[in-house]
Design a protein around this nucleic acid. Structure first.
Lengths: 345, 345
DNA sequence: CTGAAAGCGCTTACAG
DNA sequence: CTGAAAGCGCTTACAG
């Protein structure tokens, strides 16, 4: 009895928070036995088991996960690292992750990294100390090698939706191909001066979407006009001023491919505020198919990705890894859909 | 040496995952001493401390949070329970929570409850076993008393944004007053037949907003016309058909107050698709001021709540509770803003 | 089939 | 100022 002094661990005294020893005493057996009926891994005499089970029920006993984790080296907890849960697509992915995790007995710790390598590293340092069984990472920072380092340290890691790499498991869509097909559709329907409103190309998804755009133009014998490449300056809302600036200078694309739906919606606003019509004067194509995109005016044509499934599959893969199924790393590529509504002609 | 047999705890062997004992040996002191320099709670000879610090650095040692938690009975982890992270307002709240928690050395476990009492209970059972230091709950289920039970068991609990109760700390806005002022504004600007598009009144926020709507009408000598009360049937999108149905029957409100922005956006779509104009024929007022609401066509007038601050303050309060400052429970009421854009005349 | 014992990695009262 | 020891609540190899 070292401490147990005047400390304030109220929870200690609450009925309902019991330990193995308490259960064992009430059942008249040793804690080893209780542990065994709990784990179900060894045979226990039917009668003993019944007594133990009853004692557990009477005492409302639930095992202390922390102690188990300390002993076993597993916490049944995974970390989900996303740039920002605020960003439209991550809530859906997160929901997929969480649902699967919950079903399989895991809890998820949410980390917002802001695509900042330092914050990412912070989290990793904090979590790696056996606090976490594995990492699900939607990072867009291709240069950062802390992922690889984590993996080398033996942590299960699955990459989600963004950057990926042959050495690490991943679940993604083919962003290049999706952009390629979206822009090709625009070309097929008669557009000739297609602008792109692109997120930072330092993030691999945007780089890929940009390449898809450029190659689709090339494949149709058109070429990329630097005037028509609108790069994000400072957040999504900057596209409002960027687009207006472009139009005011008299530059007149006949379509704009936005690399995300929120960007597309902001751009539609700028177009309308400039006195032009959609899709009459300018078509707009988005990316992501966020829920609202069907309801804005005009309803937005866009490319949809299976976000929920991405999260769900990612979680499933990670938990398989944690539970020791060691297959070689594999990148799962999910499908996308081109959804035509009224913002393109 | 009981086990240590052929088990697969690879992480054990990885450099970088060290324990107190290792650090102590390298520094030529006892683990007690190392623990002491780490905690900073007792004096340690300057020279000894320096040696220890060096050893820690050399070994890239970070303490095992699990072991600390087991010993101390605290995990520095809080649970955030939200109906669904998918729902527009929760990502922002969550971000506020997470930022504060992180700054104060806490991690947050995210739980999606779907406003389902059983799932809520599930989580609580799972997490209560000292896994978690406290709960931040955005539950809308007023009838559920598991919150109260949790509190009685000694768990710190803070309620967020939704249901609240005098016995438990909470951070909210005055939903009644906000709706009252929004609808009063509509009345002042000449609207006489004001409809409400209301989420399920079983959820306390919607009940409050409904009351604010009803009382604002009453205060102006108008009364609630049951024909103009549109109740959600099955998710936000149902308002599309509900609104169209209303208009098709020839019922013609001159304004619609929607109890959330997504509802407002869906309703605007239905109005336009029915060949009417906004705000010419019908004004629309939303609630929440989600980011996109400034960009939709027409830009949406709405009531904004300080979501980020709500999350941040909630987290701060919870952590204070956890750290033992026991003030009497208090409900903090944050301000709201009526934002007039172009969807109301 | 079951118990006693060691050990997971910490912290801290107790002696020096 | 510092170390040896007990204990947080579990699990499991080792003996019976």
């Amino acid at each position: 009895m070292a401490e147990r002094g005047g400390d304030d661990n109220r929870r200690e005294e609450i009925k309902g928070v019991m330990n193995l020893k308490g259960v064992a005493e009430r059942a008249g057996v040793s804690s080893s036995t209780v542990s065994r009926v709990l784990s179900g891994k060894s045979y226990v005499n039917e009668k003993t088991r019944a007594k133990v089970l009853e004692s557990i029920k009477d005492l409302h006993y639930t095992p202390n996960v922390l102690a188990q984790a300390l002993k076993l080296g597993r916490t049944n907890t995974i970390a989900l690292m996303v740039p920002s849960i605020h960003n439209e697509i991550f809530p859906v992915i997160t929901r997929g992750v969480e649902d699967v995790a919950r079903k399989l007995g895991f809890t998820v710790i949410l980390c917002n990294t802001d695509d900042d390598a330092e914050i990412e590293q912070d989290y990793i340092n904090k979590l790696r100390t056996r606090y976490i069984d594995g990492f699900l990472v939607a990072s867009a920072l291709p240069g950062s090698d802390h992922m690889r380092r984590l993996k080398e340290e033996g942590f299960p890691v699955v990459l989600l939706s963004r950057y990926y790499d042959d050495d690490i498991d991943a679940v993604i869509i083919d962003n290049y191909q999706a952009a390629f097909e979206g822009v090709s559709y625009l070309i097929r329907s008669g557009h000739k001066r297609i602008a792109i409103a692109c997120g930072p190309r330092a993030l691999s998804i945007y780089e890929k979407r940009y390449q898809g755009y450029a190659d689709a133009l090339k494949a149709a014998g058109l070429k990329v006009d630097p005037e028509l490449v609108i790069m994000e300056v400072n957040g999504t809302n900057s596209f409002y001023y960027l687009t207006q600036g472009l139009l005011r200078k008299g530059i007149r694309p006949d379509a704009i491919f936005a690399t995300s739906d929120p960007k597309a919606i902001v751009i539609m606003r700028a177009i309308v505020d400039s006195g032009l019509s959609i899709p009459g004067d300018i078509s707009v194509l988005g990316f992501d198919n966020i829920e609202m995109s069907a309801f804005v005016e005009p309803p937005l044509s866009t490319i949809s990705q299976p976000l929920y499934e991405m999260g769900a599959l990612g979680a499933r893969k990670l938990i398989e890894l944690i539970q020791g199924e060691s297959k070689p790393p594999r990148t799962d590529i999910l499908g996308f859909d081109l959804i035509i509504r009224k913002s393109t002609r």
